[in-house]
Simulated scan of single mutants.
Amino acid sequence: MTSSRRARRVEVARIVPVDASVAFAWVADLRTHPRWIVATRLEGTAGRGPELGDRYTMASGPGARRAPGSGLGRLVVMDSMVVEQLERPSTAAARVGRTRLRKLGPVLLGDAGFDVVPLDERRCRVVWWEEAYLAGPLPRAVTDPLVGLALRGFMQLSLGRLAQALARRS
């Protein structure tokens, strides 16, 4: 049985050398995630994206970059989600861009998202946060600390890759 309490928030931030609108385009559109999120691939096809209500399934883990059915399937977490919030940033108006995804399982449940905070026309702060937890069967009191630790490392490495990719493009 899954508890209705909120998951622990894991948050990682990085200053990236591009305007907030550019960073937002990369973090809000899940089609770009395999370019910078470690060991991740998009399952299936995606439309124009991102739009409210869009549904995506990401495969993450050591075997994620391999073609489906090529082995190591047990080392891949399937993460289905739906886009529930999209607010584009504005440097001129000092408006933070926000995207929020609801995780639908089967392994992870909860929420995740990105906040893109404009600093000036050439820099912004990208905040990746997750309030995700394992769907079961172990109690969340046991799994939450481990999930948080794994997420933090995964997110730090991936945001570093995002900053490098965006620096090369600017």
Rank of each mutant, 00 (worst) to 15 (best):
G44F: 04
T143D: 01
P139N: 07
S4I: 11
Q164F: 14
A165N: 11
V147S: 09
S3R: 12
R55W: 02
L149H: 12
R88I: 02
G73M: 00
R168N: 09
F154Y: 15
R74S: 08
R122M: 00
R168W: 13
A163I: 11
R5F: 09
V117S: 03
S70N: 01
P145A: 10
R9T: 05
T57I: 07
L42N: 06
L72A: 14
A20G: 06
R168C: 03
L138Y: 08
L72S: 02
W26M: 08
A135K: 03
G148Y: 02
P89K: 07
G53P: 10
R41G: 06
P106C: 02
L157W: 14
T57S: 07
G69F: 01
Q164T: 15
L109Q: 00
V147D: 08
G136R: 09
Y56Q: 01
V116E: 01
V96C: 03
E43N: 06
R169L: 14
D29S: 08
W26L: 07
S80I: 02
Q156L: 13
E43T: 04
A7T: 04
G113A: 01
R48E: 12
A163G: 14
A39F: 08
G71A: 10
L157V: 15
T99V: 15
A59F: 05
P137H: 10
G53D: 11
R122V: 12
P89R: 07
R74A: 14
R35E: 13
R66D: 07
A141E: 07
V127T: 05
R169A: 15
V142W: 11
A39V: 04
P106D: 00
R102L: 15
R55K: 09
A167Q: 09
G110I: 06
E121C: 05
V77W: 09
R125V: 01
G47M: 06
A112K: 09
L146K: 01
A64G: 03
L166W: 03
G136E: 05
D29H: 09
P62A: 12
S70Y: 02
C124S: 10
R125W: 04
